[in-house]
Amino acid sequence: MKELSGIAEIVLRINGEERRAAVRPGDTLLRVLREKLGLTGAKCGCENGDCGACTVLLDGKPVKSCMILAVECEDAAVTTIEGLRNHPVQQAFAEENGFQCGFCTPGMILNAAALVEAHPEPDDATDREWMQSNLCRCTGYEGIRNALAAARRKASAP
């Protein structure tokens, strides 16, 4: 049985690299990413699981990193926005102006990337249900929706 207390070193697989961090068991993944590992792409919004600004991929599934303890993520593959390198969804968000201030954008892009991966074919009901996990407080959702459609076109282009 694994047991951790005080300050312990854990190994996380983040964006394909092994990263070591000294953490307290009560540290959330979000805080460890931002404050211990310098990966500030995941944003600290509500820290209550509502806004989705802290979304990362855990073994390919979008999750809210403010609700997960870093120690739970040993052996899992964590992908942050820094791990997406010119992904079609990133290109589409830039081309379709799927953002305004950009605070929610990393979470939006990671969730959208997982959505496009899981559902390559467009489906309004699924898209709506999936993207409801992320809130944007300054632009409308039309640009985001357009970016999603454009990302699918890019992903399916020969």
């Binding site: 049985m1 694994k2 047991e3 951790l4 009560g26 540290d27 959330t28 805080r31 303890l69 120690v71």
Partner: peptide, 30 residues
């Protein structure tokens, strides 16, 4: 961030889990 100092336990079996609960007062299953 959770301010409290927490002990984290990751059992492999159900029996280990309840044994851990018995050894750690105030433990919660996560």
């Amino acid at each position: 961030m959770i301010a409290a100092d927490v002990v984290y336990l990751r059992p492999d079996t159900a029996e280990e889990a309840v044994d851990a609960w018995r050894r750690h007062a105030g433990a919660r299953y996560l």
